[in-house]
Simulated scan of single mutants.
Amino acid sequence: MNLTLWIAAGLLAAVALVGGVSKTFVPRERLAAAHGGGWTGDVGDGFVRTLGILELLAAAGLVLPAVTGIAPVLVPVTAGAWVLLMTGASITHGRRGERAFVALNLVYLALALVVAVGRFGPGSF
């Protein structure tokens, strides 16, 4: 159980890191031109950058508290926040008719839910 939760948290952290770096440092116009990034053309730079920073924080929050032993309760809290973020992402892509991205976001949501429930419950630190 512990290994499964570590793997799920690590995968989510990698996804969050890649998404966070791209949303924080890649120009919005370039993101809007990318496949699945059209939604960024409908919002402001500040919103996209804020999401990117939140994703970077999520990447850290899914792994670092457990690794350092400092406030490990932040791992399931972060996973719960990721569930909310992926809910919003699924709705956004759904409104745009991007079904493949909805499915992908739901996979990430399910992984985050496993981490949140597992780390709050039987696999807590």
Rank of each mutant, 00 (worst) to 15 (best):
L74Y: 01
G88K: 03
G46F: 12
L54Y: 14
P76M: 03
I70T: 15
L84H: 03
G121K: 09
A58M: 11
S22R: 14
A14P: 05
L109W: 09
T78G: 00
V15D: 05
V107W: 03
L17C: 12
W6S: 08
R30L: 14
A116I: 00
D42F: 13
V21M: 13
G19C: 01
I7Y: 11
P27R: 05
G41F: 15
L104Q: 05
T68N: 09
E98F: 06
A32L: 07
W82F: 15
R28S: 05
V15P: 01
F47M: 14
D42L: 12
F125R: 09
A59I: 08
V114N: 06
R96T: 06
G44K: 03
G38R: 08
R119L: 04
T87A: 13
S90T: 08
L104V: 11
T87S: 08
K23W: 12
R96M: 01
V83D: 02
S90L: 04
G123S: 05
A16H: 03
T87D: 10
V77F: 07
L11R: 06
L12N: 00
V43G: 13
P72E: 10
L85I: 13
G118F: 01
F120L: 07
A16I: 01
H93V: 00
V102F: 03
Y108Q: 04
T92K: 00
A116K: 02
L3T: 14
R96Y: 04
G10E: 07
G61E: 02
Y108P: 00
A112D: 05
M1E: 11
G20V: 06
